[in-house]
């Protein structure tokens, strides 16, 4: 594909200047600040000293912190796999609905975003807590005898993660399924493929870019979401996000928090780079 030439218009350059300045001050500036911070030494009580050190990075190799990273990766992986499965199925069938129903589903997906995500999480507390909504319903229909007491457990955190992240997966899969040329599926059926075979060899392959985008949109934030583990996991589930927040707000070890953030960011960058690589190698975007 040919690259579009940027408009070389002088006036146009000045119009976009504020955007460059905004990015400089609010994105690049803080980033540089954070990287610098991560190489400085901490002041005993507050702030930092001007001493250069690799110590912050070295202390990440402490087994306790490595375990936190591993735990975060594990939760992100579990959440992403579940979100990918349910999100793909949901997004696929949503794209196949009649236009009217589709619009309604879209609304139902968007409405929760109008409420603060923290408040929505408190809703889950009411559902999950001992003798809460879930326990009462399950006991009433006789599925369980004892309350499950799901609140402050690992499954509760996973459910919270799925709940928070699945809309991104659904929308990303939806937009890619919606673009499907269904004649291709008919062609596959015509050439002898069963419905399942036609799905795997054609539909799934052609909607894979949407699924991969959804995976990135799920995996990257799930590494950093700390308040879900906080609220639904109590202090039993500690993630990198929680660690950073704790180091920054409670321990006031800014350089260490910065170093943790930089490492987290590097992990995410590698993920996105890998995704790009896969997407490009497959030329998935190639369309007729």
């Amino acid at each position: 594909m040919k690259k579009k030439k940027a408009a070389g218009n002088g006036a146009f350059k000045w119009f976009v200047m504020p955007i460059y300045l905004f990015t400089l001050f609010f994105v690049i500036g803080p980033l540089i600040y954070m990287v610098i911070l991560s190489f400085l030494e901490r002041e005993e009580t507050w702030g930092v000293t001007n001493t250069f050190t690799f110590g912050n990075y070295l202390s990440i190799f402490d087994p306790i912190y490595l375990k936190t990273f591993a735990e975060s990766l594990r939760l992100a992986l579990i959440s992403t796999v579940l979100v990918a499965f349910f999100g793909y199925v949901f997004g696929y069938f949503m794209a196949k609905l009649k236009p009217r129903m589709r619009k309604m589903m879209m609304m139902l997906l968007m409405i929760p975003f109008w409420t603060n995500s923290l408040i929505r999480l408190y809703g889950w507390i009411i559902i999950f807590r001992a003798n809460g909504t879930l326990d009462s319903v399950l006991m009433a229909i006789g599925l369980i005898k004892e309350p499950l007491k799901l609140l402050y457990t690992y499954p509760a955190v996973v459910v919270g993660m799925i709940y928070a992240l699945i809309p991104f997966m659904i929308l990303s899969v939806y937009s890619s399924v919606e673009k499907m040329d269904w004649h291709l599926v008919e062609a596959a059926r015509d050439l002898g493929a069963t419905p399942a075979k036609a799905f795997w060899t054609v539909t799934f392959r052609l909607t894979l870019p949407g699924l991969l985008t959804g995976i990135i949109l799920t995996f990257v934030p799930s590494m950093g979401l700390f308040f879900i583990a906080d609220i639904l996991g109590g202090n039993k589930v500690v993630l990198v996000g929680n660690l950073i927040q704790e180091q920054l707000m409670k321990v006031h070890n800014w350089p260490f928090a910065a170093a943790l953030s930089v490492v987290l960011m590097l992990i995410m960058t590698v993920m996105i780079w890998a995704y790009r690589k896969i997407a490009k190698a497959d030329e998935l975007e190639a369309r007729l």
């Binding site: 004649h183 291709l184 062609a187 059926r189 015509d190 998935l284 369309r287």
Partner: peptide, 18 residues
């Protein structure tokens, strides 16, 4: 359709782009 020994040349060709 997959059980019929009949094949179609579609109007827009419907070649698999991938």
């Amino acid at each position: 359709p997959n059980k019929r020994n009949v094949n179609t040349v579609f109007q827009n060709y419907a070649l698999f782009p991938h």
